[in-house]
Each structure stands twice: as C-alpha cells, then as structure tokens.
Simulated assay, not measured.
Amino acid sequence: MTSPSLPAALRAALDAKLEGLSRQDAAGRAALISKTYRDGGSSIAIKSEIDALAYALVRMPATYAAIAACLNALVEERPDFAPKTLLDVGAGPGTASWAAAEAFASLENFMLLDINPALQKLALELGRDHPRLGAMTCRRDPDALDDVDAADLVIASYLIGEVSDAERSGLAERLWTKTREVLLVVEPGTPAGYERIIALRRDLIARGAHVAVPCPHDLPCPLQPPDWCHFAQRLPRLRAHIQLKGAELPFEDEKFSYVVLMREAPAKRAARVLAPPDVGKVEVAAKLCTAGGVAIAKIARRDKAAYATARRWRWGDAVAEWI
C-alpha cells in the first residue's frame, strides 16, 4: 500500500527548493493563497515561483495523502490494474503524478496538464531527478486536454471545483473521453465537494462508466442530506509544513470525496465503511454502503472471529458484507 507520507525523494526536492527562502515570506504567501481558495478562488492566485512553492509546502502533503488513499482503494479492488500511461489533469505541482508513480511501478509515461506556469515549472523541477517522473511532459495551453492522447489512468484531483457549474458536465465528458481504463476524480470532503463528485458520477455512468470504488454499485447514491459521502486520511506534518501553517499538532486529517470509474464493470465490489465504527464490548456497529444501500452492520462479540475482524475496520475500508 502507498504510504500517505510524501516520498523521500519529493521531500528532498522540496527541502532543496527551500534553501535560502524566507520562511516568513513563504508563510505570508501561503496564508494569502489559502484564503483565496477558501473564498472560492483558484490557482490564478499563484503567480510566482515563491507562491508555487508556498502552495506546494502547505497543500502538497494533504493532497498527496488523499490521492494515495484513493489509489490504495483502487489497487485493493483491482490488483491486476497495471497502467503504463498517466494523464494528470489540473496537475499543479505534480502531486497526483507522484502518488501514481508510487502506486504503480508499471507507469512509464506521465502527461501533466495545468494552465498555471509557476506550478508547471515547479512540477518539472521537483520531478527532475526521479527515474520515471524526470521524463514527464507538461502542457498548459487551454486546448491541451482535447489534443493529448488518451491514457490508461486519468486523474483530476481538486480540479472540478475550480470550474463553473456550466462547465463541469462538459469537463467530465472530456475527462472520460481521454480515459482508456480508469478515471480518478478527487474533491474536498465537504458537502459541496461531494455534490460535485456525485454529479460527475451520475453523468459518466449515463455514458457507460462503472464505479470501481468507493461505491459497491452503479446505482444512485443512497445517502440523504445532511449526510454526505467522504473519507479522511491522517498524515504527518513536515517541519516546514508546521512552520508555514503555524500549526501545533504534528499531524492533520485530510477529508476528501472521490470516485474511481472504469470502462469495464467489476466482477464484484465490496461494501464500504462510511464512518468511524463504534467499537463496544458487546458488539461492533459500522455504517456500511452495500450493494443494497446503506445499512448498519452489527457484529456481536460472541462471534469471536468476525468480531476480531470488525474491530480492525477503519473509516473508508472495503469489507465483506456481514448483513
């Protein structure tokens, strides 16, 4: 399984970029960029090399951890999937490409698309010494998505929230057109992020896509407001990460919503744990999304083997259906 921590080579590349940089200046820029995103802005706020680096130091660890969790779920469901080509759409500093390179040793070709020149330049510099990412190709022209070749694996992470409501359906179709086998879309784990994922999921299922994970079915999402489907990944904070964010805890929890869609229907899909299970002395109670909808699985302590297994369930895990 891919670790949620940044790879050592990426940490070293970031550290090298930090040499001689004013941490106070970088922290101020990072705070401004974060506020822009919270206010509904986009990567247009990232205009310089220092802006791009500040953004990468603050957001790259959490984004990487979320994407790694999604790819781990995919590998668990499809251990035979061995993509050779990746299309990283809205690549930013190349976070998804790094996560995919860690998850799939089979990847040979990396195409990164991003309209921000500062982020694209940083992506190329961070991957320069990587044995496979060093040969990545980047494009930032607005028509690049329509021009590039289709890829075995397409990833769009934290991207669809940056386009207008009117553009999202068209973007979903364009992403799917470029997908030979598997498409991963990740968004923040907020109600709004979930709604964007569900809309894309619905549109692409109508075009013949099948859900690989996290859903155990291609049916409409059974959750009803105010509930929404999201997951969390805990990750350690780097020292520079702590300094720039003014954080106190040595870790943070990144919440995300996602969907992995594929061309072929899976032979079988596991149920998914939708919230932290309630582990008691008498039983384990867990909220599951199953092929038949949402249900509460209750595993009694008297069933020793099943209880021992259920005690290890974590939010987001794929599990055998117990009900």
Score class of each variant (00 low, 15 high):
residue 265 A to W: 03
residue 38 R to I: 06
residue 24 Q to T: 14
residue 52 A to F: 07
residue 134 G to W: 02
residue 295 A to L: 12
residue 203 D to I: 11
residue 194 Y to M: 03
residue 218 D to G: 11
residue 17 K to Q: 15
residue 310 A to Q: 10
residue 142 P to S: 13
residue 64 Y to F: 15
residue 132 R to T: 13
residue 114 D to Y: 03
residue 19 E to Q: 14
residue 42 S to M: 04
residue 119 L to I: 10
residue 77 E to T: 13
residue 236 P to R: 08
residue 27 A to F: 02
residue 151 A to Y: 03
residue 120 Q to Y: 00
residue 173 E to W: 02
residue 187 E to T: 03
residue 168 R to M: 09
residue 63 T to S: 13
residue 253 D to Q: 05
residue 293 G to Q: 05
residue 200 L to R: 00
residue 86 L to S: 08
residue 38 R to E: 13
residue 272 R to H: 07
residue 265 A to S: 14
residue 158 Y to M: 01
residue 294 V to I: 13
residue 43 S to I: 04
residue 161 G to A: 03
residue 307 Y to I: 03
residue 46 I to N: 09
residue 252 E to Q: 10
residue 110 F to A: 09
residue 127 G to Y: 04
residue 88 D to V: 11
residue 164 S to I: 03
residue 298 K to E: 12
residue 240 A to N: 13
residue 19 E to M: 06
residue 231 F to Y: 13
residue 137 T to L: 13
residue 130 H to W: 11
residue 148 V to N: 06
residue 248 E to A: 11
residue 60 M to T: 09
residue 304 K to F: 09
residue 118 A to V: 04
residue 125 E to Q: 15
residue 266 P to N: 09
residue 98 W to L: 05
residue 116 N to L: 06
residue 46 I to R: 04
residue 48 S to I: 09
residue 296 I to G: 01
residue 321 E to L: 12
residue 233 Q to D: 04
residue 262 M to S: 12
residue 239 R to M: 12
residue 17 K to E: 15
residue 34 S to D: 15
residue 271 A to G: 11
residue 211 V to Y: 03
residue 40 G to L: 10
residue 15 D to H: 14
residue 310 A to N: 08
residue 10 L to M: 14
residue 247 A to S: 15
residue 190 T to E: 05
residue 318 A to L: 14
residue 241 H to V: 01
residue 67 I to L: 01
residue 86 L to M: 09
residue 91 A to N: 06
residue 297 A to M: 06
residue 204 L to K: 08
residue 209 A to M: 02
residue 8 A to K: 15
residue 287 K to R: 15
residue 194 Y to Q: 00
residue 193 G to D: 05
residue 153 L to K: 07
residue 206 A to Y: 05
residue 197 I to L: 06
residue 246 G to E: 07
residue 158 Y to W: 10
residue 116 N to V: 01
residue 46 I to G: 02
residue 199 A to L: 11
residue 267 A to H: 08
residue 72 N to G: 12
residue 75 V to C: 11
residue 52 A to R: 12
residue 258 Y to D: 01
residue 163 V to A: 07
residue 218 D to C: 15
residue 8 A to W: 06
residue 16 A to Q: 13
residue 31 A to L: 08
residue 9 A to L: 11
residue 176 W to R: 04
residue 118 A to M: 01
residue 253 D to R: 01
residue 36 T to Y: 00
residue 163 V to Y: 05
residue 187 E to K: 00
residue 185 V to K: 05
residue 223 L to H: 13
residue 158 Y to F: 11
residue 131 P to S: 05
residue 303 D to R: 15
residue 96 A to Q: 00
residue 322 W to T: 10
residue 227 D to T: 11
residue 138 C to E: 00
residue 304 K to H: 12
residue 238 L to P: 04
residue 231 F to P: 04
residue 166 A to Q: 12
residue 265 A to M: 10
residue 191 P to V: 03
residue 193 G to P: 00
residue 21 L to Y: 01
residue 100 A to W: 03
residue 129 D to S: 14
residue 92 G to E: 04
residue 16 A to H: 14
residue 1 M to C: 11
residue 69 A to P: 02
residue 10 L to R: 10
residue 35 K to N: 12
residue 16 A to W: 06
residue 86 L to T: 08
residue 312 R to G: 07
residue 188 P to K: 03
residue 17 K to Y: 02
residue 87 L to I: 08
residue 43 S to D: 15
residue 273 V to M: 01
residue 322 W to N: 06
residue 200 L to E: 04
residue 50 I to M: 10
residue 163 V to N: 07
residue 18 L to P: 00
residue 217 H to L: 09
residue 242 I to F: 00
residue 100 A to K: 00
residue 26 A to D: 02
residue 39 D to M: 11
residue 58 V to W: 07
